[in-house]
Design a protein around this nucleic acid. Structure first.
Lengths: 294, 294
DNA sequence: CATACACATTCCCAATTGGAATACCAATAA
DNA sequence: TTATTGGTATTCCAATTGGGAATGTGTATG
């Protein structure tokens, strides 16, 4: 027996004052109504209705219970409705995790635009260069360079960055600036350990196995090591542009078709995805898509 | 599927973080737990848990739903408990209907004593000489002279009043004061229409069919008509004592064994009778019992 | 007194439920 | 990589439950 149904039935009957009328209104047999109320009364341990041969009326306990149930049904229904609306409306809080450079340099504008378009959503960005656990840290969407599939996660590719290769002025002064990418083997390379394999770089679609002097899963760390003159590293240009501008880093292999680094929006796989998540991912994807065309 | 059970299950799981642990704790199979939650999620239309291979965690919707459910389940449980307690404790409001004379002259003291003994009960007395409908007027206990069984009512006899016969001084002056009850046939009689039959009076256990000049279902009305000199009437002594004292009425047939008028406490028949009702009726019955012995 | 009306109960069949076993999936260990 | 483990989902079947129709019971009504 569904207690909820019984309680709704109880409400109806209290309103209509009759089992039969309620049964008709709800298209069920009168016997079923009688049985359900009997079950409810029995499971509660007190009587809800006085029965006379002509009508039913609430007992004093029934009256008080009715009041409480009324509130119960109303509140729970409202909550269920609201939560269900999240599946079709962009409302609620959206928690995003993104690497620091990407967050500050690529995410600010689309987030602003998204919020302006969807004023009922609120966004919280957690800047974190480590790979967060979406479940433990309660994150809706993580932006990642690697499409490493965690348990039950889904990923949507947002963009492909052509990589920019760079080293510090000091390093190039000491080791000479390479003219062609084919000289790569003569240089120390700083690699991203999450690339697989990390020590294989592509130029003009050709594989080059490089001398891996240092590797890390942290882009920031890689950039820092390059600035310190450890060797040649590769990262998306937006991540190091400011260092190039300040002459802390110098770009090399400018005129070669390089390997690209994809960025993904990773999110939990659930049967009913809150619409704010779907909407934000789609918005981001189309934002970067249109940006690429410019 | 009982939504209530499912919600309680949902609470448990949220607390324990595991379907299996919950199943063990509640002595049910893990499959059943899985099915119930699946049913609940499906009927709600949104996902409550993220499932990973090692544990389950609440979705954002799940978290909000949990909070709401927690609060509401708690409230309804408390209400159910409180209402159930009314079956074993003397608490709540007790609505009593009683005829005016009986209320003021016989009920005041036992009610005071009952309240002193049971401070958590509150009593409301509705004074009404007409026969009220316990269902329509929302009365718990009605005090009545007649054991007229209404629909589904129960009755407990509280006491037997020996009747007192009386007439106005004027009436007796005009018609002569009867010496013996055997003269009753010569007098006009005022009868209580709810007695059955109303025109048969008993003296020393003998039947006398009387001349019924007026009858009413209202004791007050009967007393008034007697005062106005219409004839001889019969009522419990406590009802007319004050008129006798003021010489508005004079008692007759003092030394005969007379018919008695029973008084009943009438109450609704319900499966689980709130204890305050049972307690008050029992208290009244034993009060009048002990009074009789004095 | 017969009738009508309303709730309770019974009987029976279809639908649902729950348990046990199994499938499945991901994290961990080897 | 592979095997193992710890967890949820699914499947299958027996048992229970639930609902409808008919019937029973009790009470107003005319």
């Amino acid at each position: 027996m569904d207690k909820f149904e019984c309680i709704k039935l109880f409400n109806q009957i209290a309103r209509l004052g009759s089992f039969t009328a309620t049964a008709n209104e709800l298209n069920m047999s009168q016997g079923a109504v009688s049985k359900k109320i009997a079950w409810l009364e029995n499971s509660l341990g007190f009587t809800l209705f006085h029965r006379t041969s002509r009508k039913v009326s609430l007992t004093s306990a029934g009256k008080q219970y009715l009041k409480q149930c009324h509130e119960l049904i109303e509140k729970i229904t409202i909550t269920e409705q609201r939560l269900k609306n999240e599946l079709s409306q962009v409302v609620g809080e959206l928690k995003i995790s993104a690497p620091s450079a990407f967050a500050t340099q690529r995410l600010a504008i689309p987030i602003r635009d998204f919020i302006n378009l969807n004023p009922k959503v609120s966004i919280n960005v957690s800047v974190n260069d480590k790979q967060v656990n979406l479940y433990n840290d309660d994150i809706d969407i993580a932006i990642r360079a690697s499409n490493l599939k965690d348990s039950g996660l889904k990923a949507k590719k947002l963009l492909d960055h052509e990589l920019c290769y760079f080293a510090s002025p000091d390093y190039l002064k000491q080791n000479g600036t390479p003219i062609s990418h084919k000289e790569i083997a003569h240089y120390h390379c700083i690699t991203y350990s999450l690339s697989n394999p990390s020590n294989v770089w592509y130029f003009n679609k050709e594989k080059y196995t490089v001398r891996e002097i240092f590797s890390s899963d942290s882009p920031e760390m890689i950039v820092n090591m390059a600035i310190l003159g450890l060797g040649i590293a590769a990262m998306p240009k937006w991540m190091v542009q400011k260092h190039i501008d300040k002459n802390e880093l110098i770009e090399v292999f400018e005129n070669v078709e390089k390997h690209s680094l994809p960025m993904y929006a990773v999110y939990k796989n659930e049967d009913y995805l809150p619409f704010r998540i779907r909407a934000f991912i789609d918005f981001l994807a189309s934002y970067f898509e249109s940006e690429k065309l410019k």
